[in-house]
Design a protein around this nucleic acid. Structure first.
Length: 294
DNA sequence: CAATAAGTAACTGCAAGTGA
DNA sequence: TCACTTGCAGTTACTTATTG
């Protein structure tokens, strides 16, 4: 029995949408489409009625749904039993983080863990830090390395790894729109500065709050996904950006960037591990979680 | 009998097709 | 324009044959 096919079936039954279900399974839509077709051919029944707009479970699909769920649960229970027997954890953990976080924290987090648990496979996905919390909540990822949100949802647990200040960065070559005295900012100095900001997420929240307190609506030159893209655009001289300083520590563009000594300073950024509390019942995830001191 | 090489089947993602 | 399917080419996994 190919348990992956059952996983694909359950994901499609949950989402009733090939695109979203394939995302959840980390495969392409075509792969998911073929998995479902393969199951249907093996079983000799149609599990989903689908057209170009809609996906629905057939009666046979509903019957198979119960079987698929039970079978997978039994399989996972057996894996847990065998793991307990051998005292060796095995399986897969997915981790989501930004490229910067992968440079900065993964080695520290995983080097010892890999030696201790060689049979645990790590699936690493990198992307926009603003998506991290949502991906953990949607169970697309087991764990994220991300900034602690202002209001941590009750269902989530957070364990800090490091603190990094949020800083204003500007092109080192200078520009005529740069504020003359960032230590003593005035609305007139900032109202025309082209800003390069995250589309969303914590650093964007802090930027918006800072400008509100200044009484200025920022002139937004570009909204981008990911801190590395902000550094690139600032390095090219397009404007002033706001990023966690840790992003600069690993940036190849450091020599083209300067930090503006802006007052008041932006809040610090707590970076750490984020996980759904109920997922900590998984021995695998708990093992990684326990790597870090409380 | 184990290790290696060669051949084959199955799987995957991309890009294009299709229909609403 | 969107969402699912299909064709294609590249990759990976598996099976069989060969060698020491």
């Amino acid at each position: 029995m190919d348990y992956r096919l059952l996983n694909h079936f359950l994901a499609l039954a949950d989402h009733l949408h090939f695109g979203r279900a394939s995302d959840a399974c980390h495969v392409s839509p075509s792969t998911l489409s073929r998995s479902i077709r393969q199951l249907e051919e093996t079983l000799g029944v149609t599990l989903f009625e689908r057209d170009n707009r809609h996906v629905t479970l057939t009666r046979e699909g509903q019957l198979f749904h119960a079987y698929a769920r039970e079978t997978l649960e039994q399989w996972q229970a057996m894996q847990a039993t065998l793991m307990a027997e051998t005292r060796e954890l095995a399986g897969e953990i997915s981790i989501y983080c930004s490229v910067t976080a992968s440079y900065s924290f993964l080695y520290r987090l995983l080097s010892e863990f890999r030696q201790r648990h060689p049979r645990i496979e790590i699936k690493l996905h990198t992307g926009d830090p603003a998506d991290a919390i949502a991906r953990v909540q949607a169970e697309q990822e087991d764990i994220a390395i991300t900034a602690r949100p202002r209001n941590l949802p009750d269902a989530l647990a957070f364990k800090p790894l490091a603190t990094s200040p949020l800083v204003f960065i500007a092109p080192r070559d200078g520009a005529d729109w740069l504020p003359a005295t960032p230590e003593t900012p005035t609305p007139s100095q900032w109202k025309d500065v082209p800003m390069i900001l995250s589309e969303s997420g914590l650093s964007r929240d802090h930027a918006d709050t800072w400008f509100r307190a200044m009484g200025v609506s920022p002139r937004i030159y570009a909204q981008v996904a990911g801190n590395e893209a902000i550094v690139s655009m600032v390095g090219l001289g397009f404007g002033v950006g706001i990023v966690p300083r840790i992003v600069l520590d690993n940036s190849p563009l450091l020599d083209r960037i300067m930090i503006l000594p802006v007052k008041p300073e932006l809040p610090h950024y707590d970076v750490g591990l984020c996980v759904l509390k109920r997922r900590l019942k998984s021995a695998l995830i708990d093992a990684l979680w326990a790597q870090l001191p409380n």
